[in-house]
């Protein structure tokens, strides 16, 4: 049997990562309505920017570089690509942007493989040496602790920005009612760029931690994008972004605990199967049919007396 407490801690660290991915997508998709599947590109660029930065800077600065690269690339994708796609064909913007995001993922991976041809494009972030540490008899790694700290800090920073600043107020306004916010002088396009910058910056930093754990690889962005969308949808795109902590942690911890009982493939099927059922159940509960049946009044036992009855 594995060390259960250790597995719980590893699962929590991984789960917090999933939560940040989901939270970033809730912020982006919930505010802008754009299915930014290319969030994997921001993850990827964060990691590779850190690889380049770590050649001359200490690793904490490489993490910061990854965060900046994620944020800048997110802002550029929104302002330079998605916004233009939407303005060129507003009626089909949702689908077009989704397709563009997929294309962007493929292009980024292919371009990295092409440009960094030697060694299959695999690169490492230099300057960080991981080690095990024991706290209260529980063994964990230094990197896991740093990642947990990073995720919590990122979530806290975004929440503070949203709650305490005027920019945050504008984001909340657009999330709540886009048209009304525009009437009050808020430019939704600026808000879009802001949330892309925030969400993608957080994800870029997460990419650096993945690269620190093993290495940066051209295909490293796909799985996190998938996890992020699942967590975001299960949480609910209209919910506050930090609500992603619950499903994120649940997935991370359950994943690790299930590995005690079944193979990795079976674990994936079990977890994502349950999440899929949750989504189906939620959709069913929200359906008109269900609402209509749940709120239908029972037939009255006696005929009602008409307002204009003869009395």
């Amino acid at each position: 049997m594995r060390d259960t407490v250790g597995a719980l801690i590893e699962g929590s660290a991984a789960g917090l990562g999933y939560a940040l991915l989901g939270a970033s997508l809730i912020l982006i998709v919930g505010t802008t309505g754009r299915f930014h599947f290319a969030i994997g590109v921001n993850y990827l660029l964060g990691a590779y920017a850190a690889v380049a930065a770590s050649l001359v800077l200490p690793w904490p600065m490489a993490v910061a570089t990854g965060v900046v690269a994620g944020g800048v690339s997110g802002a550029l994708i929104e302002a330079g690509l998605y916004d233009r796609v939407e303005r060129s064909a507003p009626a089909s913007a949702l689908l077009n942007i989704f397709v563009v995001a997929f294309a962007l993922m493929s292009i980024a991976e292919g371009a990295l493989r092409l440009l960094l041809s030697s060694g299959g494009g695999v690169r490492k972030v230099s300057g960080f040496s991981d080690q095990q540490i024991s706290l209260l008899g529980v063994t964990m790694t230094k990197l896991n602790l740093w990642q947990v700290a990073y995720v919590l800090l990122a979530l806290l920073a975004i929440q503070l920005l949203l709650v305490t600043t005027s920019a945050g107020l504008r984001v909340r306004g657009v999330r709540s009612n886009r048209e009304l916010a525009a009437v009050h002088g808020v430019n939704p396009r600026h808000v879009n760029v802001l949330v892309f910058t925030l969400g993608c910056a957080a994800v870029g930093g997460l990419g650096v931690f993945a690269a620190l754990r093993t290495s940066a690889t051209p295909d490293m962005g796909l799985t996190p994008a998938f996890y992020g969308f699942v967590i975001a949808f299960v949480t609910g795109l209209g919910r506050p972004f930090f609500h992603a902590l619950v499903p994120g942690l649940a997935v991370g911890v359950t994943e690790r605990m299930l590995l005690n009982l079944m193979s990795p493939a079976q674990t994936q099927v079990a977890i994502f199967g349950v999440l899929f059922l949750l989504l189906v159940l939620r959709a069913a509960l929200a359906s008109r049919w269900f609402v209509a049946h749940a709120t239908r009044r029972r037939p009255a036992s006696r005929p009602a007396v008409g307002v204009g009855g003869t009395g």
């Binding site: 597995a7 590893e10 991984a14 754990r213 093993t214 490293m220 990795p264």
Partner: peptide, 16 residues
């Protein structure tokens, strides 16, 4: 033990 091909975190396998 086995690991999913998409996995890049081997802490669970190493623990076992």
């Amino acid at each position: 033990v086995s690991s999913a091909p998409t996995n890049s975190d081997y802490s669970a396998q190493i623990r076992e």
